[in-house]
């Protein structure tokens, strides 16, 4: 379990994936490649993503849960795929923002 808050950064322990929380607070079971994610920089990579969680992450994409309570952004891509409490997170199709600069 990790503590979510906007700006918090987490890494996978089984691939190169890193994410930053854009939206969401509270305790959550965030995983990548089938293994729990840990605060960025706190662990070495050990092992491989499990077969059922190896879809991979895409750099710069936003991932969210179905009820839009949590959104993370991928800052480093890897081979594992993301899940929240065992449910896979999907790439969010964002409506284009009105660029302001």
């Amino acid at each position: 379990m990790v503590e979510l808050r906007p700006g918090a950064r987490f890494q996978s322990t089984v691939c190169a994936t890193e994410v930053i929380v854009v939206k969401g607070t509270g305790t959550a079971e965030l995983s990548c490649g089938g293994a729990p994610m840990v605060p960025a920089g706190s662990a070495e990579r050990a092992g491989e993503p499990s077969a059922d969680a190896s879809g991979g992450t895409l750099l710069g994409k936003r991932y969210g849960d179905g009820d839009e309570t949590v959104e993370v952004l991928c800052t480093k891509a890897g081979e594992g795929s993301l899940a929240l409490a065992g449910v896979a997170l999907a790439v969010k199709v964002t409506k284009p923002l009105p660029a302001s600069d």
């Binding site: 906007p6 700006g7 930053i20 854009v22 750099l59 710069g60 994409k61 952004l73 964002t94 284009p96 923002l97 660029a99 302001s100």
Partner: peptide, 16 residues
Amino acid sequence: HRHLVSYVFGTVEFAS
């Protein structure tokens, strides 16, 4: 750093 990074993540789509 957190203010500016939040601003960019909140307003810009990566590699768009």
